[in-house]
Design a binder for these strands. Structure first.
Lengths: 120, 120
DNA sequence: CACGTATATGCCCATAGGAGTATATAAAGA
DNA sequence: TCTTTATATACTCCTATGGGCATATACGTG
């Protein structure tokens, strides 16, 4: 499990991460909420922990798992060059639609409001 | 290869995508630049194409491959909830460092310039 | 100390998918 | 039409990894 990308490729792990966004959870809570066998949960948590996506704090017999930001930032960093590329696409679409605004005066149900700028 | 996450989990595919950021490329160009066997390139391109990461246009015997934005946006959308979470962390770090700025006047080589605001 | 609860780990199996090689398809050019 | 170039596909092999189950470990409680 070298890269962060392999780690988030697994659907159950993404479910666990999404669950942890709201707040930290114990293994048992994750097990119940995701209806996942406990060993499965523990194994995925291990992968997530070793990749730095989560950390655990001990609470008696429980372990509370919570998110750590770094690997997410790594994904975000990877995405950055492509983000430049796709926002260019959105801009082109924007200009296209703007031209349509001028040439085709809206009559009826389309284009109710002015489109908001895409949040890059 | 269900999800976009599985598609980008493969290192060679990420290499191909990164290469295509600069401009569209033929299969042979990708093959040479990445020093990857041609069937390997074609197979990965197939996966990327079927997942919507790239599209190909025909140029005589060549196929020119270029990026398509949608799957990247899907990854970005998945990242969004976590982004809220980690920027909170950065803010906390920021406040912490700012407190250190006041209490510990820098003498010497560290902290050369004022830190730029993190670009959320 | 014995027992229940919470979590981690080890083992086995099945499968997906990537690598390598050979070959098919298709277009261009002689 | 024959050959060369460019790309796709088919086939085999190998390995990584996820699931299921049993069990180990660890802590709390009576």
């Amino acid at each position: 499990m070298e890269s962060v990308f392999e780690v988030i490729a697994e659907p159950n792990r993404r479910s666990i991460l999404s669950l942890l966004v709201s707040s930290q959870q114990s293994v048992g809570e994750i097990e119940r909420r995701l209806r996942m066998p406990q060993p499965t949960v523990s194994k995925h948590l291990r992968v997530l922990r070793e990749a730095g996506f989560v950390e655990s704090i001990v609470d008696a017999q429980r372990r509370l798992y919570r998110l750590k930001p770094e690997p997410f930032q790594e994904v975000d960093a990877w995405l950055a060059p492509f983000r430049r590329f796709w926002s260019a696409h959105l801009d082109a679409l924007e200009r296209h639609l703007d031209r349509m605004d001028q040439s085709t005066p809206t009559k009826g149900k389309t284009r109710k409001k002015t489109r908001p700028k895409p949040r890059i």
